[in-house]
Write a protein that binds this DNA or RNA. Structure first.
Lengths: 338, 338
DNA sequence: CTGAAAGCGCTTACAG
DNA sequence: CTGAAAGCGCTTACAG
């Protein structure tokens, strides 16, 4: 049996307006009618049609998560574990706050159009954007729009005309600095560095941490120890082989992400180089790093996810920048506690 | 400027009906009008309102993923990595097929009501259910309903009155059998077994594999080597300690999930027991297992996800049962290839 | 505190 | 091939 607000109204002997008022917690309904209607709603298991509600102007409880992944295709093996880790927590936080999550990827302008229409037509009440390159035009537009959005690891500087936007960032600089402290306090001087994607905020910040840490220790920066990369395992593997083929000396390694670190380790293993006692650090706390006996930095994505949801379901409308502190993960216990 | 189908119609000098026909690829529109309308749509960046379309009876492109997690709460540390792994692939597959995913958890009857309304009101076009215990009443109802659904690892037997349902299962029995083969061919006879949650299909099937493999080798089943458990790390840890405190002898271990295996290893380490040369297997291929030097079975969730999406976006309406083959993962290379 | 009515933006059966 | 009109199921401003 189809059951809609008209049926409920009939059953309760009132108009749909009154049913609607009860549904939306309006105060101007007699206690008697409210009770009666609520009972009938419950008895008949009535749930209002979300599409109709949205069409009529109500906000829904769905939050969009939009992941930028230009390489997405049927053959792609891109590891998006990092993002799903984040999404996982977002889904749980949303659930605990009575919201649901729509997950969508974004690759080209078709996707941009779709996402804009989700906002415009109220399929989602707000959105979280992650994985974007710096100065992405579409994202800038979202930031300036009237839609409530969170941008993750995108920029450290609030845009002048940003509206209802939370910029939330991993403290990449702080995390990188802690790693360098660990490395340098063991008296290492020749830290081999693998930089990440400079088109992303994280790539810039982690490199800045490396450079500043050396400067503060008055260690001359040796460009040949700084390998440009793009967060990919393959590139890092090639770079590491080049280093080993040259006569460049190093005493420690900081890879600005775990994914690259794995390529580095592969190259070391191939040459049977014993790296067990060397200070070697990655970043991101990908699931395999610490179990493999390596050290890394956790971006504490759960915190980021929690702050994001909190912002979106609050009625805060001012824009702001927030940071999530990172945490060093040195052993399996810290790994599981995290 | 607000732009709707009426505006497009005006601009093209036609009625909304014709615009709608173009939008929905109906054949009965003159080529001239179709072109003109398409151009205007493109020029004005018009995207139809999904809520209105759905309300008017169109199916949308959102697929729900519903994860059963009775312990979900603010303090919960439940590891749902397994599910998110699955969801990850589902999201990607959906994206490649022009669909989006709504992720939602399910804990109690309120959640059931919400999910039913998502179906009823067309907020989703179909749904995938994962993590459910056997004979869950709500799920049985969904299976019998007219909604198109996929149930993952739920039951091996098609229900008589199942409608438009794909039962998709990991080949737990096959995977467990392969593990036992590996263990037994090394001449082990006393295989310590940690069973999973018997309220789930996987718990039953993996235990069946253990029992049958021993029978086939004419090894007498020793109940004291079979530890009842519930997939939790804590319980497995306690069970392992009990074994070590007793004088029960074992020469190999098969834990029916990696999560429990970790508890088992903790207990072994505490007693400084050297297990490096022992045949030890987990199940599920959780991210840390193989990097820690242990062996496990991959449920090939990607295959399961792909088959699920394929079923849901096809126009198949008969119900059926399918299985996804598992794969043994013995070393880090196999781990990364997976 | 309550109801009749307009409006949200589409689709589709009907008539031509 | 095309348009006028009804319908999808709500909400809310208006009038009382």
């Amino acid at each position: 049996m189809k059951i809609d607000s008209i049926k409920i109204a009939e059953l309760a002997g009132v108009s749909r307006s009154t049913v609607s008022r009860v549904l939306n917690n309006h105060p101007n309904v007699s206690e008697k009618n409210r009770k009666k209607i609520l009972n009938i709603i419950d008895e008949y298991n009535y749930i209002p049609n979300l599409n109709a509600q949205t069409l009529a102007g109500k906000k829904n409880k769905v939050i969009g998560v939009f992941i930028y992944e230009p390489n997405m295709n049927a053959q792609s093996t891109t590891d998006t574990a990092y993002f799903m880790n984040f999404t996982d927590t977002v889904v749980k936080e949303a659930f605990l706050n009575n919201h649901q999550i729509l997950v969508d990827y974004l690759k080209d302008s078709n996707d941009e159009k779709r996402i804009e229409s989700f906002f415009k037509n109220g399929n989602i009440s707000s959105g979280i954007f992650i994985g974007f390159l710096r100065e992405n035009l579409f994202l800038e537009k979202m930031i300036e729009s009237d839609y409530k959005v969170v941008v993750v690891d995108y920029a450290s500087q609030l845009k002048d005309n940003a509206k209802k936007t939370l910029y939330i960032n991993t403290d990449d600089y702080g995390g990188g600095t802690s790693v360098m402290e660990e490395i340098l306090k063991k008296n290492n001087k020749k830290v081999l560095f693998f930089s990440g994607d400079k088109k992303k905020l994280s790539g810039l910040e982690r490199e800045r941490a490396y450079v500043e840490a050396l400067k503060n220790k008055n260690i001359v920066i040796n460009k040949t120890l700084m390998m440009e990369s793009d967060y990919s395992r393959e590139k890092a593997y090639e770079n590491m082989k080049k280093i080993l083929d040259s006569n460049i000396k190093f005493d420690s390694i900081f890879s600005s992400c775990d994914n690259m670190l794995f390529g580095v380790i592969e190259a070391l293993k191939e040459r049977s180089i014993d790296y067990k006692n060397m200070e070697i650090w990655g970043f991101d706390n990908l699931k395999y790093t610490v179990p493999m006996g390596l050290k890394t930095v956790s971006p504490m994505l759960k915190d980021t996810a929690k702050k994001s949801i909190k912002f979106l379901i609050s009625d805060i409308t001012e824009s702001k920048v927030e940071y999530t502190k990172t945490k060093l993960i040195k052993n399996i216990n810290e790994y599981f506690e995290n």
